[in-house]
Write a protein that binds this DNA or RNA. Structure first.
Lengths: 257, 257
DNA sequence: TATTATTGTGTCATAACGACGCAATGATAT
DNA sequence: ATATCATTGCGTCGTTATGACACAATAATA
């Protein structure tokens, strides 16, 4: 499905290729050096960072479009990807602003160009293995980089609000679903997965209680190896029990009622 | 914002009024006689029941559009309404089927009429007080009625899948948020609110444990009256403590982590 | 006035949870 | 080689939440 179109082509002919007035934006989370990261694009024509997004081909399933955008940007397939909210404020895009951007690109468009219409966007979030991602900017961006979640202040359009909502959703998901398989390397230590939870929740957890709880779910298992080389006592390595992990994904974790 | 347009006008001129290719559908839940009800429309041109849905005016916030649809159909304002999923399968509507429907209506349209395009729809669910609703069909439907949730087998297009997803979402919400203020009358008994929970969860709950738990949340309070007239011991009446209810709505109920 | 189904209130054992203690370990410094 | 030190492994303890169940109180009806 990937189509290498020039930016000019997209702008001029996009109206024929894509669904009108509808876009999607991806919040791509990674985990590295005990920090949650988000993949952002630096735009060519605006001095702002943005979430990687895209449009939906006229005959494309919307989930597939999200998968495609992710693949184009990270080179990864088979990714944990989830739709979480629709952003439909009528003024979420600024027409004049966009016109200006196009001017900077040296492209003149008709007043009724599809890109100048109001857009409603579907937010997706993805959890990916930081180490595997090869960030790739596209024709409309000059950079594609991981940003530290907590340092992100302002983004293009309403993308900061989209990011915030994604994080909020992720936090809630933590109670219903196992998490980490897509964010951690194959083998990891207990302190590492704890840091992941702490980072998402933005909250300190007791080391011993965390271990008891995460093990009680049953979707991670201890290996017979330890991670040597650290400054202190070598921690055990763990890995996900994929069978139980997927079972837990389907059936949910607890659910009070 | 309400516009009384004839069905013909909508079909012919809708393209100028509404956002293209985007619709919304509402799953309106009510509770009556210990049963969960869903408000459905009987369509004029197709022999099928459908969820009340609508389109988004070109300058209208999508949440506002959902509110409007709900108001038009139920006569209710200030409703609990929540977006829960986007349905974006490219084949979710059948073009030929739609053409046939229009034929039945005696309306001939161009091949590129906006209604014949592919539509992506945003699902909303609403919780309303059954007793207050005045179901109103619109120009494209011949009936608007409450249906018993468990008797609904098949619906128009993919509306059954939308309904199922709404119910699944509602079940999950039960763990995070107080519920019932929008579904129950002002005063209610403990068995009544328990039935509500049991109906949503489709699961029996222990009477005594339920009471202990629901009271521990603090958002309902016991009144000094009892409901006399029943065949047996008169149960106490309860009402929602709106202040604590709203606080719980914002902060969430428990959240294991 | 007795009957009956339902409601109000409580108990009990078990499981889950939060806070914390202490010994084991493995690299580093002496 | 040995002591040091931060970190890890593995527990305890008291409190709270949960599931299962017992029994008395009550209001309409027979």
């Amino acid at each position: 499905m990937k189509q290498e179109t020039s930016i000019k082509d997209t702008i001029l002919k996009g109206g024929k290729l894509f669904m009108p007035s509808l876009s999607l934006d991806c919040v791509i989370f990674g985990f590295h050096e005990n920090e949650l990261k988000v993949l952002l694009l630096k735009m060519k024509s605006a001095d702002a960072w943005a979430l990687p997004g895209g449009f939906i081909y006229k005959d494309e399933h919307i989930e597939e479009a999200a998968t495609r955008v992710l693949r184009e940007r990270t080179g990864i397939q088979d990714i944990f990807l989830r739709q979480f909210h629709v952003f439909g404020h009528p003024k979420r895009a600024d027409k004049k602003f966009h016109l200006n951007m196009l001017k900077k690109d040296g492209i003149s468009v008709e007043k009724d160009n599809w890109l100048l219409q109001r857009f409603i966007t579907v937010g997706y979030y993805a959890l990916v293995d930081f180490a595997v991602v090869i960030p790739e900017p596209d024709h409309s961006s000059i950079a594609c980089e991981w940003h530290d979640l907590h340092t992100i202040r302002e983004l293009f359009m309403d993308h900061k609000a989209i990011l915030d909502k994604a994080l909020e959703t992720l936090r809630l998901q933590l109670n219903h679903e196992p998490i980490g398989y897509n964010l951690l390397p194959t083998k990891f230590t207990m302190p590492e997965i704890q840091k992941l939870y702490e980072t998402i929740l933005d909250k300190q957890l007791d080391r011993r209680n965390f271990q008891r709880r995460i093990l009680s779910f049953g979707f991670i298992k201890r290996l017979k190896e330890t991670r040597k080389g650290g400054a202190h006592k070598a921690p055990y390595l763990y890995s996900f029990d994929l069978k139980k992990y997927k079972k837990a994904l389907q059936e949910g974790l607890q659910g009070a009622w």
